[in-house]
Structure formats: C-alpha cells, structure tokens
Amino acid sequence: MSREETTLRVPFLLDMEYRYAVGQYGRRFFTELRDHARLMGARCPECERVYVPPRPVCGICYRELHEWVEVGPEGTIVGWTVVRLPFIDPMTGEQRPVPYGFAIIRLDGASTSLYHFLDETDERKIRVGQRVRAVFREKREGSLRDILHFRLLEE
C-alpha cells in the first residue's frame, strides 16, 4: 500500500448549540459587570488569593470562597501575543478576524489572571509588565464581552 494512494473523503459539518449556565459566582460577577462596570473577585479565607474568574472553591486550600472584592479595572500584562494565524472560530464556524492582540492580564487586586483582547496589534508596542485598563462597552449585557478590550496605558 503506497502512501501516495488517496481514498474518498466524506464531508461533515458539526453544528451544535449549547446553553452553559454561568453559575452562582458567574452570576454575581456578570451582574456587577453589567450594572456597574465593576470587576469582582472572590478571596480565599486561608491563603488570601483573590480569584478571577471567581469560583466557589480555592483549589489549593480546598476552602469555600465567600468574600468578594473589587479588582481592576487596571492591571498588568503577564503574557501577550498578536494572533496572526487565521483559523475557524468554533463559535461561528467562520474565520476569526486576525490579527488581534491577546493577553494574560493580572487585574490589580487579583492573584490570578484573565485572558482578554488588547487594543494593539503592533508587536513592538506591547511588553510584559505593561499597564492596561479595561474598556467597557456602553451597552452591557452581562458577558465577558462587556469588556471591549484592554487599552495599553501610556507610561
């Protein structure tokens, strides 16, 4: 059997719809985000880590989290890239527009980081440690996309 040999290929489009519950902690986060353009984290009573996204349990101490604290809206870039590779966005089945700036952002007051968009696509202008600020949409509906992106702050 030679590997150059080809056989028929059959196309198939996987197209499914899902409904994800954001959960109790997500509800609190997205309500604050929608109604007050405020970002909230949950603090562990033992290690005092502040988790964003907020969640019911600190995985490290295995303690329930009940204390809420405001974080951001400014933060620091922990890691970043500019995505130039075109690929199909599974959420639409269409190619996602590239390039776009994409960063791991440590919000002020948080111990964990959030993934989000940057407003910059010039690699020479972005660096680790740079300060950024969340830009909120005017009309917010309670999703992570209520943050349009993070804007690089002037030094």
Partner: peptide, 11 residues
C-alpha cells in the same frame, strides 16, 4: 471555558 475564555482563545 465557554464563559470565560473561549471568545479570546486562539487554538
């Protein structure tokens, strides 16, 4: 995560 990560993730 569909709620927190998927919209910005890039493969």
């Amino acid at each position: 995560d569909p709620i927190w990560e998927r919209s910005v993730m890039a493969g």
